[in-house]
Nucleic acid binder design. Structure first.
Lengths: 114, 114
DNA sequence: CCTGATACCTAGTAATGTTATGCATCAAGC
DNA sequence: GCTTGATGCATAACATTACTAGGTATCAGG
């Protein structure tokens, strides 16, 4: 799958990956790969900047967690605003994919292609 | 609708708008607006560069047409390669929107959300 | 004559995702 | 003990892409 297609949807993807439960960056990558059935296999250099951006925007909150083995992880969770943003993205996605559907469908069919 | 959502899909949108019949740039804008029921209302500065890019890539072919009133228009049509590219984009879109659907759907549901 | 719609074009800009790289920790193999 | 690979975080440099803003020209209507 071509990377450029993601553009503009990545924030939504990351927010969705965190919608069930908090997770650290690496786990977000795995969650996205799992939920998308392998369709989205994103490199770390893609995810970390997004997480930082979303935290800066107040949609995510992070805290450092030290595992039993002494390893430090940064765990991200949706904030209230993040949940709202995800809901907005969802609605926007419906609009968008609907419009694309009509576009690809051809002549101005509205709902019931004869 | 936020513009950034388009990213990566614009080529497909333009190709789709030309799939029924050739059209000039301005008409492409109107066709996109019409087919998308107003969801996509793109400025000229967005469309013309795309048309040029797609022609350069061999997916569109253009010819200058002079109307009865003496006005010059540049009419674009899909090439054979453009048609194939559109078909590929369609398939890619199915993959992509399916993956997003699973992403938004939450925990690893495959098809039948209980 | 002047305005607004039609019609084309391009330079500059901001945003965004990827590549490449670096660092550190941990488990496993030898 | 040492090395290797997976885990885990981070950022700088880069290419792509869509939009903004500006320019030119034609045509119809007032």
């Amino acid at each position: 799958m071509e990377g450029e297609i993601l553009k503009g949807h990545l924030d939504m993807i990351v927010l969705a990956a965190l919608s069930d439960r908090p997770a650290h960056g690496y786990a977000v990558i795995e969650e996205i790969r799992r939920r998308s059935a392998g369709a989205f296999d994103l490199p770390e250099g893609t995810i970390y900047p997004v997480l930082h951006r979303l935290e800066q925007a107040g949609l995510l909150a992070s805290r450092w967690v030290t595992t039993d083995s002494g390893r430090r992880r940064r765990v991200y969770a949706l904030t209230r605003r993040g949940e709202r943003a995800l809901a907005d993205h969802r609605a926007g996605w419906e609009q968008f994919s609907g419009a694309i559907g009509r576009l690809l469908g051809g002549r101005g069919l509205s709902k019931n292609p004869a």
